[in-house]
Simulated assay, not measured.
Amino acid sequence: MPYLDHGHINPMINLYKILALNSNNILITFVVTEEWLGFIGSDPKPKNICFASIPNVIPSALF
């Protein structure tokens, strides 16, 4: 699993939001750590994007 940080997550979320808004026929699931789900889970998103989490298995992004 690559080390995920703001530089990786935010552009991917923006790309998938564009894809989801242009097509109702796809369902996009982001699998992130529990820590990241706390950061982005409440952000507004299209209804065909959902989030799933795995346990925090990498060091925290917060220093």
Score class of each variant (00 low, 15 high):
6 H>C: 11
16 Y>S: 10
33 T>V: 01
62 L>A: 12
3 Y>L: 12
37 L>G: 05
27 L>N: 15
58 I>N: 04
12 M>I: 07
61 A>V: 12
27 L>S: 07
34 E>P: 07
57 V>M: 05
23 S>Y: 08
5 D>Y: 15
33 T>R: 07
62 L>R: 06
22 N>L: 06
28 I>L: 03
36 W>A: 13
41 G>D: 05
39 F>Y: 15
31 V>P: 01
15 L>R: 08
8 H>I: 13
19 L>W: 04
42 S>R: 08
17 K>P: 02
5 D>A: 15
30 F>N: 02
27 L>R: 09
18 I>A: 10
45 K>T: 01
56 N>Q: 12
32 V>Q: 00
13 I>P: 00
52 A>Y: 05
8 H>Q: 15
37 L>E: 02
58 I>G: 08
57 V>T: 12
15 L>C: 11
51 F>A: 00
34 E>F: 00
51 F>I: 14
2 P>T: 12
37 L>F: 13
15 L>Y: 13
30 F>H: 02
6 H>F: 11
38 G>C: 02
30 F>D: 02
28 I>N: 03
36 W>S: 06
29 T>A: 08
43 D>I: 08
19 L>K: 13
1 M>G: 04
16 Y>F: 13
9 I>L: 13
2 P>R: 04
24 N>F: 10
18 I>H: 15
50 C>N: 14
21 L>P: 11
62 L>K: 12
8 H>K: 10
42 S>Y: 08
26 I>V: 09
25 N>M: 08
41 G>Y: 01
29 T>Q: 15
23 S>A: 09
12 M>W: 11
53 S>F: 02
57 V>I: 11
29 T>L: 01
59 P>R: 06
54 I>L: 13
12 M>R: 11
13 I>F: 09
21 L>E: 14
8 H>S: 07
30 F>S: 00
16 Y>G: 03
60 S>K: 14
1 M>K: 15
53 S>K: 05
3 Y>F: 09
32 V>S: 06
14 N>I: 15
33 T>D: 14
62 L>P: 02
42 S>T: 14
40 I>P: 01
25 N>L: 11
11 P>F: 00
10 N>P: 13
26 I>F: 02
56 N>L: 07
34 E>M: 08
46 P>S: 01
52 A>F: 03
2 P>E: 04
42 S>N: 15
4 L>I: 13
18 I>M: 09
16 Y>E: 14
45 K>I: 08
6 H>E: 09
47 K>I: 04
28 I>F: 05
62 L>V: 04
46 P>T: 04
15 L>A: 12
38 G>R: 13
28 I>V: 12
13 I>K: 14
11 P>K: 05
19 L>P: 01
53 S>T: 07
60 S>F: 06
26 I>T: 10
12 M>G: 10
24 N>W: 02
42 S>W: 02
61 A>K: 04
54 I>M: 12
